[in-house]
């Protein structure tokens, strides 16, 4: 059971950061994962009033605030036009509308969860994560960073990296994914990010001389998969090969993710 002794609606990022330096305090994003934990939090820090719930469009990017909800991503016309509905395809299977109206981008990104659909997509889009103290960090570096007491302020996706196709496989709708797969083609190279292995998503770049089938087979052989209650490692491997090949062919045909 989660016990919270004190609640603070932060008035500035600076105040939130200072409070967060105490290891007994925590930042609440959507609070959906936090609520599942059995712990006592001294001060819960809420970022809801800091204007981080907007998606700003600039000339070359979309800047997604940490308190933007997954439902906001699902419905955002700019992001979905850019990515062929990959954002919708990515978040739509996550539990239900009520859940996605609470779950935040900041919570999903900071957690760097292995099962994260969103992390898989953001890795494929080579997004940048803006941290309050550490500044801009590329998401590929961010996923390898230790869990420091910094605050995710926003995520930046480039308009040049929108050529993606997202797909995932679930045993039942709304469950955690058995495997997530997002393929991309930008900066003259093609690749695939594979998540829910069940570990964090990994990026595999396709070699120029490789056929799609050879590439999918290579990922199947080289990507580390694990077993859990949803699937065996062996099943994930076979699924990965098929999803990758399918997704690349869909991307090549210019199909939308959904």
């Amino acid at each position: 059971m989660l016990t919270i002794r004190k609640y603070v609606m932060a008035e500035s990022l600076s105040q939130a950061y200072d409070l967060y330096q105490n290891k007994n305090n925590t930042i609440i994003g959507g609070m959906l994962w936090l609520k599942m934990q059995d712990r006592t939090v001294d001060t819960a820090i809420d970022l809801s009033n800091l204007g981080l719930n907007t998606i700003e469009e600039t000339e070359n990017t979309y800047e997604i605030g940490a308190m933007v909800t997954l439902r906001d991503l699902e419905l955002h016309s700019g992001l979905n036009t850019l990515t062929g509905n990959a954002f919708t395809a990515c978040v739509k299977p996550i539990v239900g509308v009520q859940f996605r109206n609470l779950a935040t981008v900041g919570g999903s990104v900071y957690g760097r969860y292995g099962f994260s659909d969103l992390l898989t997509l953001l890795l494929a889009m080579n997004a940048d994560v803006v941290l309050y103290k550490n500044g801009i960090v590329n998401i590929h570096d961010f996923v390898k960073m230790p869990y420091t007491r910094d605050i995710v302020v926003k995520v930046i996706v480039s308009k040049n990296n929108g050529n993606v196709y997202y797909t995932s496989f679930r045993n039942t709708k709304t469950d955690f994914p058995v495997l997530t797969c997002c393929v991309y083609h930008h900066d003259n190279h093609t690749g695939a990010c594979i998540g829910a292995r069940p570990g964090k998503a990994l990026d595999f770049v396709m070699n120029e001389e490789e056929t799609v089938t050879d590439y999918a087979n290579r990922i199947h052989e080289s990507c580390p998969f694990g077993s859990n209650m949803r699937s065996s490692a062996s099943y994930r491997g076979k699924l990965c090969r098929n999803l990758t090949e399918y997704a690349i062919r869909q991307l090549q045909k210019g199909e939308s993710s959904c």
Partner: peptide, 26 residues
């Protein structure tokens, strides 16, 4: 109690949310 079933759905400023997963202070 795991934010999955939707039994506790209420509308917050018109949007459906799970009241079992939302702090009253918020």
């Amino acid at each position: 109690e795991t934010s999955n079933c939707g039994l506790c759905t209420v509308l917050l400023d018109g949007k459906p949310v799970l009241s079992c997963s939302l702090l009253t202070c918020r």
